[in-house]
Structure formats: C-alpha cells, structure tokens
Write a protein that binds this DNA or RNA. Structure first.
Length: 731
DNA sequence: TGCGTGCGGCTTTTT
DNA sequence: GCCGCACGCA
C-alpha cells in the first residue's frame, strides 16, 4: 500500500500492525508522528476502520492539530469526523454529551489553575486555617494527587483522622469539591476523573464508546497519569477480550512525573495488555552523530528504562560547545553574539534557533541579551495570553453569563470596573447566598433584601440589569458581536480607555486580540457558541500558538520544547541546583532531570551549545554556581569547552568589567589596568608555549588560528580563548 | 472604599 | 526581585 511506502522497516511494521495491543518505543527523532499518522491513514484507507472509529489521543492541541494536518495530506477523507485530540478535549466532548448522568449540568465550565487557587484560598479562609501551614500551591498539588489516585475527600479524612494537619488538608479538599460542584465547574483533573466515573456508573455509555472506537492510538504514553491510564484500559479492553490499543512513547522522555505521570505505565505495558507486540524505533533522522552520541551516553546513566540506543547514518557533525560565562548577563550576551554569528555566517534562520532553560524565570536575562543585539525572539509559556488580567476579567463575565453559579468568576468581577462594592457588600452577598442556598450572583437578584446601604443596593441593581440584558443578548448575537457588547455594557472598555499608561494601551491591544480570536473561532468552527468558545480557550495552551510565526528565535522551557526540533539549540543555565533542579536532588527525581536534559539535547539537529554561569542572581542576591553534573556525563570527544571571552565583542567586554567592578569577582582594580596593555597577536605565541591565565592559572598553547588561541590548562582542561581579550601572559 | 507602603515568601516544570 | 497581603490613612 502506497501509504506505507515512505516508512522504514520498523516504522512499517508498527504502522501496519493489525489486531491486538502494540507498544511502539519511539526514541527522539525516529519518526514517531510519522508512524502515528501513517497508521491512522492506513487503517482508514485499507477499510479496516471508518474515520469515526479511530480515537487518537495526544498531549497537546498542537500535536493533535499536526496529526490532523498530516493525516489529511495522506488521505482524502474529511478529518473532522475523526476523534483526534488531547485527553482533556476528548473527555470534554464525551462529558458534554453525557455528564448529566452523573449529576452535572451540561453547560459546566472549566476552572483553570488560577481559578483553582482562588477557590482553594477561599476554602482555607472559610475553614479558618492558617495559610502558613496550608499554602495554595501545596494544597493544589495535594488535591490533584488524591484525585488522580481516586481517593475521595471522605476516604482521605478517615484514613488521616489522627493527623491534625492531614485531616485539615482533607477538609479543604472536601470543601473544595463541594464548592466546585456548587459552581457547576470542573477542574483539569476532573475532566478525566469524571469521564471515568461516567463510564463506571453507566455501562451503556461505556459500551457505546467501546464499540465506537475500534482502534485507539495514544501518543506520549510515558506521560500518562493513573487516571488517563485507567481511561485507556476502560476504552481499550473490549468485552470480547480483544484490545486494539496502539501506544507510542519513550520512557527516556518521561518528564511529567511531578504532574502525576507514571513511567511504569509504559514499562509495564506488556503486563496490562497480554500478548502485546513491541516495536522499537531507534534510527534517528534528526541529529548529527555527535549529538546522538552525547544523548545516548547521558541517558545510559538512568536505571528506569527498557534501554535502547539511537543511531544515525548522518555524519559526525560539529562538536558540542560548552561555554562557561561569568554570570547570567554574560551568558545572555554571549548567546546573543553566537546567534548573530550563526545567522550571519551560517545563514541559519532565527526560527531554527531555540534557547532552552529549566525555569521560566531564566528567560528575562536571556531576553535582555537578545534585545541588546537586536535579535527578534518570542517566548513560549510564562504569562500566557489568556492568563492576563484584562482577558481573565472578560472571561469571568462570559462565564458568569453562561453559568450563574460560578462564584469564582463572580468574585473576580463584582467590583471590576469599580462599583463601590467592597468587603462589606461582598460579605452581605456571601451571607445571603449561603443562607438561601443560592450562588452569589443569584443572591444579587434580591438586591433589596441584602440589608445593604441604599447606594450599594442601587449599584448591585444596575449590575444585575446589565447582566440580565447580556444574558438575553447572548442568544441573539454572533459570538464576537456579543463579546463586544459585554465589554462595552459592563464598563470594561471605559475602564481600559481611561488608563493612559503604556500598560493600559497594551491591555487594550490584548482585548482587541481577544476579539479577533473570537471572530476567528466564530468563522472557523460550526459549533461556535459561547460555551464552545470558552472550552476551546480553557484547553488551549501557549504552545498551541507557536506554529505560525515568522523568523524569530524561540525561548522556552525544556518541557515546552518536547516534540520540537531546531537546527541550533542553546541549553542554558547548566548549573547544579538549576539543572538538575535543587528540588530534584534525590535518586528518583534525578533520573527525571536527566531525562529532561536528554530531551533538551535531542532537540538539536546540527549545532548544540550549552552554557553555564559561575555566578547567578537568584532571589536578588548573587550565588556562586558549579557547572551541572550532567555535563560530565557527556563524552569528552563530543565537546569543546571554552570561556565566554573567546567570543568577546565590545558589549560583552564592557559588561564583564562592569560586573567585575560591582562584585570584585574578576579582578581587583589594579589588575583591571592591565587590560589597557597592548593587544596580543597570534605571532606572540607558538605551539607549546606555557602561559598564565588570570583565572585558570598555568596552561600550554595547543592551537592557534584566526585570533583564537586554544590552551590546555592544568586545572581547567582545554579552553578556546580570543587573543584580543584573553587575560593571559606568556611565561 | 480606595490606595500607598512595607514585609514576607517564594519558583521547578503545565495539560 | 517580584508579587501578594496586611495595615493604616484620606
């Protein structure tokens, strides 16, 4: 069959597999997506399955969209009838249809991270617990864990009754669940959990979907958590004992353990699905031999793996450059200078260059370097578009209009824009709501019974009448038109217009962008109600918007980079405590950090740079840093180490000196004068000369070319230095 | 009720 | 070094 022609033997073996469970271990860059898409196309083209009988699950919308695009290039079927999506979006689709079976309203809303935290904060306050002992983030993690383990609050409280702290955590969990339910809201975990619950309590629904989905494909199987795993089992194991589950994954790229992903799901696949076939894809089509060699050697240090070794038929390629810099500013400027060089001399598009880091906080310094050199860039992640205050405000209005039980949204906007409704009014509303079993917004309809000052009651009255009008408008206007009405009628627009600051203007621009997103959604989808739009946004991540952008450098965390590839990659901040993160120092976690490093390495096709700083500012103060232990796991023959000075440009040098003066780290003022001494020339040295370096001491000249001098230091190994700037003396 | 100030805690990664 | 919170004043 034509569709399978472009695959290699292993890929074809996987893609054309017929009946029964199969696990495809697909190393980085081995054509995983190709196998998934070609298999799907093959199933349909060969008549084994109708398009609507295939369920393909991915982890990101971006991956889902890419799959759809690529499949539609392979076959002629309309792909919109196929179920291709993330775990979360697939579950929403099922819940939208059947959630009333487990006591929810079909127009439920989805609470994101932020909403969750707000709700948790309310719970802690309501239970009168000290936020010092119960932080929002730890409680959030706790609740998520318990949910995914499928422990109910009651069960947890019973089991931990004697432990005061844990019992209280259980109480928070219980109240949180109660409030969620009352708001007719689901959090991210619920999307999966409630689908499980639906299936478990309604055999007919489960049977319906089991019959419907003749073939199930799961991408990134190593990242499934307990609940997702159960979902696959439920849908995948048919009543007649058969199971056409096709999972693709790579245990070496399992990097979401902290989010509940369970690497044993992939390691134990054969036990869960008896008679499973296993295919390993090990031929890499992405990277040079040097890069692959480094990746293989690094990941070899892990124990939790099935083991595989990537190979390539590409040539050796460039050595990996490891660069030590003075601090994070030096790091940023060095990288910027190198990017310029790659762009100019090697004609590498900016869009083919990525800067990776362990934590989002690192992006700021890097950004400054790029700005300094005038290099265009974009940042993936960090503060997401839909997380911006002005956008969240509009969303809160939209959600409240849709679902009057949404207390979190109500609290957000009741005094935005200012309506002179402060703590007093809020308290009165909240009390009345509690006494009468209403949501806060519903309570507002009884504005004359709340026992408020006349002015406050009047304010609520006008708020309610605006909202009532909007609830009517919702059903008679196209989406984007309606949202414009919301922004104008509620006074949000005037509020933004009144702010003349730069931030104010950018907020207005964001609102405009939001409106065009709504317009776009309205035109693109047939199911374009407000409900649909809100779901769409809730499940969207920043990553999904990265595809269509112009020639700019990409900055992102290593996590975000999974699944992507670039010609040139910079892995930054390779210092102990940073990468690996100080939080993941124990044995188990260090393996996940190593996998993360492995993911980072394998993003690079041609050129890989790694940087680490000696000194980095964290929490506002300087910290000395050691280079990452992971760097020592890369074979010597793959790397070329140097100091940032080897790439010296004017800016960098000035910077270096400013740093020196400020911190006294480099040199004392007396030494600084040395810099004025005549520049060194190539002819000043010959191979084998002994030299003295200000920082690294004694060394021997081993190579000289174009103003770059390579010196073997007794303590520091081989370094490249720029003759023009290197602080060295002939001995 | 709204706004300014000062203090403390915190950063891992995100569908 | 930033954000959120508590407190105090107009």
């Amino acid at each position: 069959m034509d569709i399978l022609n472009s695959l290699n033997d292993k890929q074809r073996e996987a893609a054309s597999h017929d009946q029964g469970p199969i696990l495809v271990i697909a190393g980085a860059g081995t054509g995983k997506t190709k196998v998934l898409t070609h298999r799907t196309a093959y199933l349909i083209e060969s008549g084994k399955a109708k398009p609507w009988e295939v369920l393909a699950i991915t982890f990101t919308n971006k991956a889902a969209n890419e799959m759809k695009d690529r499949i539609s290039n392979l076959i002629d079927y309309p792909i919109d009838r196929m179920w291709i999506g993330t775990f979360h979006s697939i579950c929403v689709r099922i819940l939208r249809r059947f959630i009333d079976r487990i006591g929810y309203d079909k127009n439920f809303i989805i609470y994101d991270d932020d909403d969750q935290k707000t709700l948790i904060k309310d719970c802690i306050k309501e239970l009168d617990l000290d936020p010092k002992y119960y932080s929002q983030s730890s409680i959030k993690e706790f609740i998520s864990n318990e949910k995914n383990r499928r422990n109910s609050p009651d069960k947890y409280i019973n089991e931990n009754y004697s432990n005061y702290i844990n019992r209280n955590k259980g109480e928070i969990y219980a109240l949180y669940e109660k409030k969620l339910k009352a708001s007719n809201a689901l959090d991210f975990d619920d999307l999966i959990i409630k689908t499980l619950e639906l299936f478990e309590k309604n055999e007919d629904v489960l049977n319906f979907y089991q019959d419907k989905f003749k073939y199930i494909l799961v991408d990134e199987y190593q990242d499934t958590n307990n609940a997702q795993y159960k979902l696959i089992i439920l849908l995948g194991r048919k009543k007649d004992g058969s199971s056409n589950v096709f999972v693709v994954g790579d245990e070496d790229q399992s990097i979401y353990g902290w989010r509940g992903a369970d690497i044993t799901n992939i390691l134990n696949f054969e036990n869960d699905f008896k008679g499973a076939k296993i295919v390993k894809l090990e031929r890499n089509y992405r990277s040079t031999a040097v890069i692959l060699n480094a990746a293989n050697q690094v990941i070899k240090n892990n124990c939790q793996r099935k083991g595989k070794k990537l190979y390539t038929e590409q040539n050796e390629g460039n050595l990996i450059r490891i660069i030590e810099t003075a601090d994070e500013r030096d790091e940023a400027f060095t990288i910027a200078a190198l990017i310029r060089r790659e762009h100019r001399e090697n004609k590498i598009d900016y869009s083919q260059i990525a800067l990776l880091y362990r934590t989002n906080a690192q992006s700021r310094a890097l950004e400054e370097g790029l700005i300094g050199e005038g290099i265009p860039y974009k940042i993936v992640g960090g503060v997401k578009f839909y997380d911006r205050k002005e956008i969240k405000d509009i969303m809160a209005y939209l959600r409240l209009i849709l679902n009057q039980k949404d207390d979190v949204s109500f609290d957000r906007i009741i005094n935005v824009p200012r309506r002179k409704l402060g703590d007093k009014a809020r308290e009165a509303i909240s009390n009345y709501a509690l006494e009468n079993g209403l949501s806060k917004f519903e309570a507002c309809f009884d504005f004359d019974k709340l026992g408020l000052q006349p002015s406050a009651a009047k304010s609520i009255e006008s708020f309610v009448s605006v909202m009532e009008m909007l609830m009517i408008k919702k059903d008679v206007m196209p989406l984007s038109q309606f949202i414009i009405n919301v922004i104008e009628d509620t006074g949000l627009k005037d509020m933004l217009l009144q702010d003349p600051s730069v931030e104010g203007r950018s907020r207005l621009e964001n609102v405009d962008e939001f409106l065009s997103a709504a317009k776009d959604f309205e035109e693109r989808y047939e199911e374009n109600s407000l409900e649909d739009f809100l779901v769409h946004i809730s499940l969207l991540s920043d990553l999904d918007k990265t595809a269509a952008s112009n020639d700019v450098v990409t900055l992102m965390t290593v996590h975000s980079a999974k699944g992507l590839e670039f010609d040139t990659v910079f892995i930054t901040g390779l210092e102990d405590g940073m990468f690996p993160s100080i939080h993941n120092d124990e044995e188990d976690n260090i393996e996940e950090e190593r996998r993360l490093f492995y993911v980072a390495i394998t993003r690079a096709k041609r050129m890989l740079y790694m940087t680490h700083a000696r000194d980095r500012i964290r929490y506002g103060s300087h910290e000395m840093r050691m280079k990452s232990r992971f760097l020592d796991e890369i074979p010597q023959e793959c790397i070329e180490e140097s100091d940032s000075l080897a790439f010296g440009n004017k800016k960098l040098q000035q910077l270096e000196h400013r740093v020196a003066r400020k911190t006294g780290f480099f040199a004392d003022p007396a030494q600084e004068k040395d810099e004025v001494k005549p520049k060194l020339k190539e002819s000043d040295f010959k191979l084998g000369d002994k030299v003295w370096h200000k920082l690294w001491g004694k060394g021997t000249v081993v190579q000289l070319k174009d103003d770059i001098i390579v010196i073997a230091f007794e303590s520091k190994g081989i370094r490249n230095l720029n003759l023009e700037y290197a602080p060295i003396e002939k001995l």
